[in-house]
Amino acid sequence: MALVVKAFFSMKFSEQFENRFVRMLAHYPTKRSVLVPTLLYAQDETGYLSPEVIHEIAERLELTDLEVENVISYYSMLTKTPRGKYNVQVCTNIACLVRGGEELLDHCKHKLGIRNKGTTADGMFSLEEVECIGACSWAPAVQVNYDFHENLTTERMDEVLDEYRAKN
C-alpha cells in the first residue's frame, strides 16, 4: 500500500504524514473515513488547504475536489487561506466571557495591530475569536496553534506572545 501511494502521487508530505495516512486507511471499512483527520494533518504541514492539497487528498480518497471542499467548509479548524505561523485563538464563549475573554481579545488586537481573522504583516501571528475550547475551569483561555494557555491576564498574554516571537 505504501509503495502504491508513493508511486502515484507527487505532492510532498512528510514521511510521518505518509506513514500515518497508510496506517489510518487500514482502520476503516471506507477510504473516505480518513478525510477529516487527514485534512488537518495536511494543513499542519502546508499551513492551509490550497487547491493542490485539496486535489491531492481528493485523488487519494477517490473523491471529487468539490466533495472535499464541501467537508472543509463545515469544520472551523480547516482553512483555505493562509494563517500566521502562530494562530492565536481567543475563546470568548460564556465561561471565558465572564472572566475577561473579550478584554483579552481586544488586547491581542491592539498588541498585534490586527483585526479578528487578520494576520500580521510579517506573517508571524494571526488572530481568531473562537468558540469554547474546553478550558472553562481555567478561563480565560487561549490556544496558540495547539498549545493551551490558561488562567490568562493581559500581562500574561503579552508574555505568551513574546515567548512565541522569541522562538524565531
Partner: peptide, 11 residues
C-alpha cells in the same frame, strides 16, 4: 468531541 460551553472534563 467535548464542545459544550462550560464542559472540560473529558479532556
Amino acid at each position: 468531541d467535548e464542545s459544550e460551553p462550560g464542559t472540560c472534563k473529558d479532556r
